[in-house]
Design a protein around this nucleic acid. Structure first.
Length: 400
DNA sequence: CATCCACAGGAAGATCTGGTAG
DNA sequence: CTACCAGATCTTCCTGTGGATG
């Protein structure tokens, strides 16, 4: 019997495609970062006071998604920590921990303190954090990645406190590295936070297609078995990603998913058609994911938009609201206000499921011009996930 | 050239959920 | 049990506005 299990496991372990698929994951930090030597040098220079035991300047890092900001930062910090044991660094992705409470909770977790998910006053967490830091008396670097994502909903309160933390501690122990891919973000900051955070600045330019190819090549040598990927496939992935502002993460995702598709089909080579397929799959997954996690009325609005766009190409907020309201009535549910629906539409636009542009129709008012920006199938696929109530409604409406 | 539509979108706060602490 | 906390969602009330139209 057990040989059946061994057989299956053997199949899984011995891929005909991958040597080590981890290398293509977006959070993998390679030891070779092509075309980023300049940035590594600059960041190391800025942080070099650490080695002598003094506090380096706060750093602000700009660059679009997938330009190597996170990889370079982690790479440099890891190397510095190896060279001196008087240093510790905490890396927080603010998109994942997007409230002041959660940021502080994960900082405390780095310090070995388990904090309840909710219930405590935020100020208590902050006090705990500072007092432990003080007791440890160790040079500390705090990295806030995608720092812009908290600012919008929760302001720069925490950021302000963090930049002042050394005054509370009575000794200079903490430096902050802020990473953002939104250039406009800085304008939203309080002037005091801005000047304190921006003591040093570092800019990561996007990669061009050639550079993306180098990156893909250097990774695939170790990620794939020999002869699995050829130049054409790599060029195609690079070209797609270059078109989207030189996003290396995108390029790696494409290559990885294309390879997974090839593997699933039992092939031993990744072909160009797999890359096209990967692009569709990635997009579908992204759309389905954001739609599935929408709040209830967000889903209802989404259905209203789908319904309307079958009749006309472009819709307005008012039209969507009318359809949405009749949908709610049909389900015998309370509807939310127009004001709220207006916000929901803006949120849908921000995640890229729809495109909503503010236009003035002169005498006929000012509104949003709404157009679907993703395939209806992907959206419905996402809507149907994990919500039976919505499921029935879709079944009912699209049944005619 | 002023008017006025159909909303945009800011501000403040209410309500609810899911939690802690004593 | 009561008192309180953070965060998400939503409401109430509000002022602002681009440009076709009369």
């Amino acid at each position: 019997m057990s040989e059946i299990i061994d057989e299956v496991l053997k199949d899984i372990n011995e891929s005909k495609i991958f040597r080590n698929r981890e290398i293509l994951r977006p959070d993998y930090i390679p030891e070779e970062l092509p075309h980023r030597h300049e940035q590594i040098r600059s960041l190391t220079r800025i942080l070099s006071p650490l080695i002598k035991g003094s506090r380096p300047s706060n750093v602000f890092i700009y660059g679009l998604t997938g330009t190597g900001k996170t990889a370079v930062t982690k790479f440099v910090l890891n190397s510095l920590v190896k060279k001196s044991n008087g240093i510790q660094f905490f890396y927080i992705n603010v998109r994942h921990e997007d409230t002041p409470y959660r940021v502080l909770a994960s900082l405390l977790e780095y310090l070995g303190i388990r904090v309840p998910r909710t219930g405590l006053p935020t100020s208590d967490l902050y006090r705990q954090f500072t007092s432990i830091l003080k007791a440890k008396n160790k040079m500390t670097l705090v990295v806030f990645d995608e720092i812009d994502s908290m600012l919008k909903n929760h302001g720069d309160d925490l950021l302000y406190k963090m930049t002042r933390i050394n005054e509370y501690l009575g000794s200079s122990l903490v430096s902050i590295i802020g990473i953002t891919n939104d250039v406009k973000f800085v304008e939203m900051l309080d002037a005091r936070v801005k000047s304190s955070l921006g003591e040093e600045e570092l800019i990561f330019p996007p990669y061009n297609a050639e550079q993306l190819k180098d990156i893909l090549k250097s990774r695939s040598e170790r990620a794939f078995l020999e002869g699995v990927v050829n130049d054409e496939v790599i060029s195609l992935c690079a070209a797609f990603a270059a078109r989207e502002h030189g996003d290396a993460r995108r390029a790696l995702d494409l290559l990885r998913v294309a390879a997974e598709i090839a593997e699933r089909l039992g092939e031993t080579k990744v072909k160009e058609q797999h890359v096209y397929e990967a692009r569709r799959e990635l997009e579908k997954d992204r759309v389905a994911e954001v739609v599935a996690t929408l709040p209830f009325h967000g889903k209802m609005v989404m259905i209203a938009i789908i319904l309307l766009s079958k009749k006309q190409k472009s819709l307005t907020t008012g039209e969507v609201y009318d359809v949405y309201k009749s949908l709610c009535k049909r389900m015998k549910l309370e509807s939310v206000t127009l004001r709220r629906v207006s916000d929901i539409i803006s949120e849908l636009d921000m995640v890229g499921v729809i495109s909503a542009k503010v236009v003035s129709k002169g005498r006929y008012g000012k509104t949003k011009e709404i157009v679907l920006a993703s395939s209806i199938e992907s959206i419905i696929y996402g809507l149907k996930k994990e919500d039976s109530e919505i499921n029935e409604l879709i079944q009912e409406i699209l049944g005619d």
